[in-house]
């Protein structure tokens, strides 16, 4: 299969010269180029000027001032810390649970495909819905289901969003992203060949040994991919915070994304928000370059 493909490749490439592919590729490339470069330059430009949407008296070149204010502002560090905390906690929860669940779903049991559908369903629930049903129906301190359960068991009531705001957002995000991690790790695990498993069986490896020494290493690449993808998405958690805590109490659940939103669309401080935007872009770029390297290795063009 790969041998014929390799043999066909140079021939196709030679013949490919006759077909002009530029008009087919150009629209996508032009659009994406415009969409990624122009706003990027604009963000950098805005970050260097004094610009407030509500106050035209504030204008002119600011140079590095916006950055200076930003770096002096404790809110930035608190937002960065919250971003990292949310990402790391959700990653640990989702990948840990997904690896175990993927291993369990590799076993045969009755109704496996139905169970899998139930398991992945939360991924398709829109973020505003998942945040609000968790906040109200489940985690509400008076009428919520969890409050009723803990009260009935005599543990008292947890006021999730007042006492554990970050944990609450992490919990909701984990519920949304566990299916994603699970689905990808399960797909990766299904490519583990039967012979390796049988060899492990014959050697007398128990289920735990199979999980740690056979399955987990096999999922390594997929875990790297999930980590990168989830990190990109989780750094941008927005709707969940928007509808549950609005970044509070205080600044407790304000991550970098929410900080920029507050600066830009609530305080109309374009300059300051753009400076923070540049920092978000730099952070994401570092992650993106790692991701591109991982994916690039597998890409056969």
């Amino acid at each position: 299969m790969s041998a014929t493909a390799a043999a066909a490749a140079p021939r196709r490439r030679k013949g490919g010269g006759k077909v002009n592919t530029l008009p087919m590729v150009a629209p996508s490339v032009t659009l994406l180029l415009a969409f990624s470069i122009i706003p990027l330059i604009a963000t950098v430009y805005f970050s260097l000027i004094r610009y407030n949407l509500t106050n035209p008296a504030i204008h002119g070149f600011a140079g590095y001032k916006n950055y200076l204010y930003l770096f002096k502002d404790p809110a930035l560090y608190s937002a960065l810390y919250t971003s990292v905390q949310m990402v790391v906690e959700v990653l640990v929860i989702t990948i840990g649970a997904a690896a175990i669940l993927a291993s369990l779903f590799e076993q045969r049991f009755p109704g496996r495909s139905i169970a899998r559908i139930l398991m992945i369903s939360p991924f398709f629930v829109m973020p505003t819905v998942s945040a609000l049903i968790w906040k109200n129906l489940l985690m509400h301190p008076v009428n919520g289901l969890i409050a009723w359960i803990t009260r009935s068991l005599g543990f008292g009531v947890i006021d999730f969003f007042a006492d554990w705001p970050v944990t609450s957002v992490v919990l909701i995000a984990s519920w949304q992203w566990l299916p994603f991690a699970f689905l990808i790790l399960l797909t990766a695990l299904q490519s583990l060949d039967e012979e390796t498993r049988e060899a492990a069986d014959l050697d007398g490896a128990g289920p735990l040994a199979v999980f740690f020494f056979v399955e987990l290493p096999h999922m390594g690449r997929a875990i790297a991919v999930v980590t990168m993808m989830e990190t990109i998405f989780l750094l941008s958690i927005f709707a969940e915070i928007y509808v549950t805590t609005s970044g509070g109490p205080g600044d407790a659940t304000t991550n970098l994304t929410f900080l920029i939103y507050k600066r830009a669309l609530l305080a109309f401080n374009v300059g300051g928000a753009s400076a923070a935007g540049v920092i978000a872009i730099i952070l994401a770029n570092i992650l993106a370059s790692i991701m591109v390297r991982i994916v690039g290795k597998r890409l056969d063009v």
């Binding site: 122009i38 706003p39 990027l40 604009a42 963000t43 805005f46 990109i232 750094l235 941008s236 927005f238 970098l256 994304t257 920029i260 939103y261 830009a264 669309l265 374009v270 928000a273 753009s274 935007g277 540049v278 978000a280 872009i281 952070l283 994401a284």
Partner: peptide
């Protein structure tokens, strides 16, 4: 990140 280009 979307938020990086939110303003423009």
């Amino acid at each position: 990140p979307s938020v990086g280009v939110l303003v423009p």
